[in-house]
């Protein structure tokens, strides 16, 4: 479903609406300019660049990079770079990434990588933020941090968040509405605490416990 919204795979049937506009089949790089940002289940940071540079890439749609700004950096590119750097620093502070901003992303722990990816998605100032298993491979403490960051991002920035998760504690803890899918088919939707009790959801996700 994520890949359909972000334009990687066109849907087999049905269409996708964003803010009332049909975006079915739009190329991924254009979907980004419409205010959709996402993170990946299996991290997709750019190795060989620092945390700061990775997050700055999130500002891409708000910048106009090109050959001439690069050649005439001092006159054409610097003001833009500095403006965007300020936005990035705000998010870095928000996600408490100050101490690692100049580290290469290759070498930081996975919990932080996930946070950098969230930062990269946030600096794009999206309307819709899609988080694909942001808690995968995290320990309880890191999960707690991440949940707090997601809630704060939503509260402070007014972003709609689409969260894909299978950690029931996280979902019931921070989600407003829940939609359960089983092999691409909707099996339940509604308030999280009701959905997790739905027998079909229990059957598909938790399994077996038919008292």
């Amino acid at each position: 479903m994520t890949n359909a919204i972000t334009g990687f795979y066109p849907p087999n049937k049905g269409s996708i609406y964003l803010d009332g506009k049909d975006i079915t089949g739009t190329a991924p790089h254009k979907v980004a300019t419409l205010g959709v940002a996402r993170t990946f289940q299996n991290l997709a940071l750019f190795n060989g660049m620092s945390v700061l540079e990775n997050i700055l890439l999130g500002r891409h749609i708000h910048m106009k990079p090109g050959v001439f700004p690069t050649a005439l950096y001092w006159w054409l590119a610097r003001p833009e770079e500095m403006r965007n750097r300020e936005v990035v620093e705000e998010v870095i502070e928000f996600l408490q990434l100050e101490s690692i901003r100049n580290e290469l992303v290759d070498g930081i722990p996975i919990g932080l990588k996930k946070r950098v990816e969230l930062a990269r998605a946030l600096v794009a100032e999206p309307h819709l933020l899609i988080l694909d298993e942001p808690m995968a491979g995290m320990n309880q403490e890191e999960k707690g941090y991440m949940a707090r960051f997601i809630l704060d991002a939503r509260a402070e920035r007014g972003i709609s968040v689409l969260l894909i998760e299978h950690h029931m504690d996280v979902i019931t803890g921070i989600c407003d509405r829940m939609l359960a899918l089983n092999y691409g088919e909707m099996i339940a939707s509604g308030l999280p605490k009701e959905v997790v009790k739905d027998p079909r959801v229990v059957d598909a996700y938790i399994g077996g416990a038919h008292g």
Binding site: T6, G7, F8, A27, P28, H29, K30, V31, A32, T33, A37, R38, F40, A44, L45, F46, N47, G48, M49, E53, L56, L57, G58, R59, H60, I61, M63, K64, P65, G66, V67, P69, T70, A71, Y73, A77, E80, E81, R120, A124
Partner: peptide, 30 residues
């Protein structure tokens, strides 16, 4: 020019394309 590439959006976009083009696309990099 090449040194400037290290600190501009163009340089970052090129590295993004080199490293992971699907992740680059999601950030709006064509």
């Amino acid at each position: 020019f090449m040194l400037n590439l290290r600190r501009t959006g163009l340089g970052r976009a090129l590295v993004a394309v080199r490293e992971k083009d699907y992740a680059a696309a999601i950030l709006g990099v064509n």
